[in-house]
Simulated assay, not measured.
Amino acid sequence: MSIMQAQVLLVEDEPAQREVLIYNLEAEGFAVRCAENGEDAMLMVSEALPDLVILDWMMPKVSGIEVCRQLKTRDDTRHIPVIMLSARSEEVDTVRGLETGADDYVTKPYSVNELMARARTQLRRTRSGSVVALSFQDITLDPESHRVIRDDQDLKLGPVEFRLLTRLMERPGRVFSREQLLDLVWGRDIFLDTRTVDVHVARLRKTLTQQGGSDPIRTVRGAGYALG
């Protein structure tokens, strides 16, 4: 895979919450650095810019809201997406967080799966203008030109099959459940039967093998699909 692993800075002072988030972020393939307070977070940002910041509001030394404000007023960090976590669920708090510059606002308690989806969404949004080509074996996918080439032959994919192949090529070897692929390819707000995934995987397979090449998509019984 030629796309770089996303670097996430997690800023959370509660050890239990921090460990749960580290586990799930790493399971999603993110590289995670952690800070236990806002002061340390700003130091870590100065050392190396992350691709995404997941930031708790209530923290010692420097609050999350102040960290967010500082990130969004600096020329070198204002482009970094910030997801604010907070137990403050009143509308006025949400508005304050977003007006400070947070790109998303998640209230506690939250669904970890939903938070992971929101993290992926923010990264897709910020990377959409600078996506590099993906490659796997003899398959190359260029998101900018919307081209897929296999063995020097252009393949014609529909938009759904193109998005499906993109997700699989971003994480070769990883087994995606049908539910995960529905989330990643169609979005969480679209309610479809999981058999829809099977239909489009079959179409993708047909196109990938039309020149006589081997089928690179692996079906894992009871689990889902993987590339390679």
Score class of each variant (00 low, 15 high):
S63N: 15
S63E: 11
G64Y: 03
G64Q: 05
G64W: 13
G64N: 02
G64D: 05
I65T: 14
V67I: 08
V67L: 12
C68Y: 03
C68A: 10
R69M: 01
Q70I: 10
Q70W: 10
Q70R: 14
Q70C: 01
K72S: 09
K72V: 04
D75Q: 11
D75M: 07
T77R: 07
T77F: 10
H79V: 10
H79I: 13
I80R: 14
I80V: 15
I80E: 03
P81E: 01
V82F: 03
V82Y: 06
I83L: 12
M84P: 05
M84Q: 01
M84S: 04
M84D: 00
L85V: 00
L85P: 00
L85M: 00
A87C: 12
R88F: 09
R88S: 09
S89T: 01
S89M: 01
E90P: 02
E90N: 12
E90I: 01
E91C: 00
V92L: 10
V92H: 12
V92P: 06
R96W: 00
G97D: 02
L98V: 06
E99R: 13
E99T: 08
E99A: 11
A102E: 10
A102Q: 11
D103R: 06
D104Y: 03
Y105R: 00
Y105T: 04
T107D: 04
K108C: 12
K108V: 04
Y110N: 02
Y110H: 14
S111R: 09
N113T: 15
N113K: 15
L115M: 10
L115K: 02
M116C: 15
A117T: 13
A117W: 10
A117D: 08
R118Q: 07
A119S: 14
R120A: 13
T121N: 13
T121F: 13
Q122H: 11
Q122F: 05
L123H: 03
R125P: 02
R125A: 14
T126G: 09
R127L: 08
S128D: 06
G129V: 08
G129T: 08
G129L: 11
S130N: 15
S130Q: 14
L134Y: 09
L134H: 10
L134G: 07
S135T: 15
